[in-house]
């Protein structure tokens, strides 16, 4: 394709690329030629690399990325740290791709895969893309948690409004006013007031 000479403008370098040299990387891989290729290339890229085999019970504190050899002899091991909320990004190094191994990759939550024999070429892209996928997933998780909380709150308020409307014979709008005024004078959220109304109602209706 011929360019009209106006596209491909150099943009600002993305943060993930600029921060490569601050990245703390743990390599859980035997010290064979793959393990050496891997650590040497990570050093060329400029990451802070530490290599261990067998895998540590958990990566050193503040590790951002773990390269993990996913081989027939490790797939039975548990890696509970990989499930933690702020778990490092996992990039698997594989020498088989039969369903047993691929299944292990999924269970580990690997964000990228490097094939053996390891070459220098491809590692940088895999690393940056895996970090990007991790960050995106983390952002999405936080967004979802926030939205779920909000949805839950709305459901509570609407339940409390129904209670007020029924017990006091007021309109939807008035019920909401009551909740809002209570929240403002007690300096708490409308959800908390709604919760208090729901709890009180369950106690009062028991009396009835």
């Amino acid at each position: 394709m011929k360019s009209d000479g106006r596209d491909k403008r150099a943009l600002e370098t993305p943060k993930l690329l600029r921060e490569l040299r601050a990245l703390r990387v743990a390599v859980f891989h035997p010290q064979d030629s793959d393990g050496e290729q891997l650590t040497q290339q990570l050093q060329r890229i400029g990451c802070q690399v530490q290599a261990f085999w067998p895998p540590l019970p958990e990566p050193p504190a503040d590790t951002n990325v773990v390269f993990l050899a996913v081989r027939p002899d490790v797939i039975k091991l548990e890696f509970p740290w990989s499930k933690a909320e702020n778990a490092p990004t996992i990039i698997a190094v594989v020498n088989y791709e039969n369903p047993v191994i691929v299944d292990a990759l999924l269970r580990l939550g690997a964000k990228s895969v490097i094939a053996s024999p390891v070459r220098s070429f491809g590692l940088l892209s895999a690393l940056v893309v895996a970090r990007h996928v991790s960050e995106q997933a983390r952002t999405k998780d936080r967004q979802i948690a926030r939205l779920e909380g909000k949805l839950f709150g709305i459901r509570k308020v609407s339940e409390a409004k129904s209670i007020l409307m029924e017990t006091r014979g007021i309109s939807d709008k008035e019920a909401y006013q009551v909740i809002r005024e209570q929240a403002m004078s007690k300096r708490v959220s409308t959800e908390e007031i709604a919760n208090a109304i729901i709890n009180a109602n369950s106690i009062l209706s028991f009396k009835r």
Binding site: S3, G5, R6, K8, A10, L11, E12
Partner: peptide, 25 residues
């Protein structure tokens, strides 16, 4: 492309840095 990315990054480290044009032939 890559050399120009580097140059763009470098000139932006100057307070008066600006890229006023970028063209390819």
């Amino acid at each position: 492309y890559e050399s120009n990315r580097i140059m763009t990054d470098l000139i932006q480290q100057r307070t008066d840095g600006a890229k006023v044009g970028e063209r390819y032939v």
